[in-house]
Simulated assay, not measured.
Amino acid sequence: MSELIPALSADELAAIDAEIAHAPYRDAVAVDALKIVQRHRGWVSDESLKAIARHLTMSADELEGVATFYNLIYRHPVGEKVILLCNSVSCWIKGCETLRARCREGLGIDYGQTTADKRYTLLPVTCLGACDKAPVLMLGDVLLENVNPAGLMATLGASGEEGT
């Protein structure tokens, strides 16, 4: 079947098939398959989603529903580093909007945007589960707690921001 799915690489197919081998049915690995392709490509294109759906013998619409339910499956290209800024009530009270403003000033991006150099993408997230350490954000896979707006650009490793 893999030769009928040119939108997926041999490595991606092998990893997806390894997951299928441990599942009760093919579409049970939908999230894992999406994560595998995203790990290889950085995001899941429409072409890739359709190829995954065909391989899992499910409709593209069903898989799209899975992909859009999870906010860590990226359906559009993202930067090298994704900044997930928590905007829950706790983080809002503790200043997440100030962090957002610092990203606008220091990186020149707002929610849903990527820097011109493709280094950062800023995305809102409803909760990161660290309300007692608000405000919080994730930089890639790293949770940053009690984030100080004054030092945000230095924390992110962004250059060109004075006074942080």
Rank of each mutant, 00 (worst) to 15 (best):
P77K: 07
D61G: 14
A67E: 03
L56E: 00
W43V: 02
W43Q: 05
S59R: 06
S45D: 06
N87F: 06
I73W: 02
K50E: 13
N87H: 12
V78E: 07
H55T: 06
S59M: 03
R39M: 08
D46V: 14
R54A: 15
S45L: 07
F69V: 03
H76C: 08
D46I: 08
C86R: 07
E47Q: 09
T68K: 10
S59Y: 07
E64K: 14
D46C: 04
R39D: 14
H40F: 12
S48P: 03
K50S: 12
I73L: 04
L56G: 00
G65V: 09
E47P: 03
V82H: 09
Y70F: 14
V78T: 13
L85V: 13
I52D: 00
Y70T: 02
E62R: 10
S45W: 04
Y74H: 15
R39T: 11
N87I: 14
L72F: 15
H76Q: 15
V89K: 10
V66H: 00
K50W: 06
E47Y: 03
N71A: 09
N71V: 13
V78G: 05
V78P: 04
L72D: 15
L85I: 11
S88D: 05
A53M: 07
W43I: 02
G79K: 10
V89I: 10
L84W: 11
Y70L: 12
C86I: 13
L84S: 13
L63G: 01
D46T: 11
I52N: 00
R75Q: 11
L84H: 13
L72M: 11
V82C: 08
